[in-house]
């Protein structure tokens, strides 16, 4: 009586076609009624096909074959027997490979060396190009920064000149008026202009200091440009910030100058409106 276990044992014989007719008939009759056994037969075929596909090519190399001949001759030499002949074509193939191998290695080495030289040349060229670009950029940045600093100095000088000139005119006008003003009132009148003058002085000092700082920063920025563009960019930002401070200080000083002028004009009007006092 056929059962699963017997069926499984008979599968190889069935697949090889070596079962007796009676056994094959019993096998096939059971197979027709059993789904699991049908799967088992399918899996048997699947495994056989998979093994055939997975069978790795195991090609005997010429070198391994030559070593086999040499090993055989070693044995025969030990026995005092004549040596066997190594096939000429096999020896020639191995020799050709042995000759080609160093040549190929040499070519590979040469190729590697050429590639290394080319890579080095490219790197040097790139470094030079980058360096030159950096220098050009640095010079432009330095020129721009110096130009900006010169502009700041020129504006400051012009501003100072205007203030000095205005102060001189106001002072002359005021002096004419003050000559007619009693001493008591004169001190009273001169208090606001003195305060304004102090403010002008302070503004001028601030401007001088800021300008010096800006000049230093520009110098520092120029030095940094030589090292790296990014660092220079930071210096430029700093220079711009300080330049802004200079402009703001100059603006404050101009306002102070305006206040001074206004104060002096009002003082002059007041003095002119009053009749000369008798001392």
């Amino acid at each position: 009586m056929m059962d699963h276990k017997t069926f499984m044992k008979l599968i190889p014989d069935y697949m090889d076609g070596t079962l007796s007719q009676a056994d094959r008939e019993a096998f096939e009759a059971f197979l027709a009624t059993c789904e699991a056994c049908q799967k088992a037969i399918e899996n048997y075929r699947t495994i056989s096909q998979a093994l055939q596909r997975a069978a790795q090519e195991a090609e005997l190399s010429d070198e391994a074959q030559l070593r086999l001949y040499e090993r055989f001759n070693e044995e025969r030499r030990r026995r005092g027997e004549s040596l066997i002949k190594i096939p000429a074509d096999l020896a020639a193939r191995v020799k050709a490979k042995a000759t080609l191998a160093p040549e190929a290695a040499k070519k590979a080495a040469q190729g590697g060396r050429d590639a290394a030289v080319l890579a080095t040349d490219s790197s040097v060229h790139l470094a030079r190009t980058t360096g030159q670009s950096g220098k050009r950029l640095g010079r432009k940045v330095k020129q721009g920064a110096m130009h900006a600093a010169q502009n700041v100095v020129d504006v400051a000088k012009e501003m100072g000149q205007t203030i000095v000139e205005t102060g001189r005119i106001v002072t002359v006008d005021s002096f004419q008026v003050l000559r007619e003003v009693p001493r008591r009132k004169r001190n009273l009148l001169l208090a606001p202009p003195k305060l304004a003058a102090n403010q002008v002085k302070a503004g001028a000092r601030l401007m001088t200091g800021t300008t010096k700082a800006a000049a230093k920063t520009v110098k520092s920025g120029a030095v940094m440009t030589k090292d790296a563009v990014s660092v220079t960019a930071t210096g430029m930002v700093e220079s711009a910030r300080l330049g802004k401070t200079v402009a703001e200080s100059t603006s404050q000083m101009a306002q102070a100058g305006g206040t001074l002028l206004q104060g002096m004009k009002e003082a002059a009007k007041t003095i002119a409106a009053e009749p000369p006092a008798n001392e």
Partner: peptide
């Protein structure tokens, strides 16, 4: 008594 085994071409490595 296995489940049906289905192998693809790319399963050669597994074998």
């Amino acid at each position: 008594m296995p489940e049906e085994l289905v192998l693809r071409e790319e399963d050669v490595q597994l074998v």
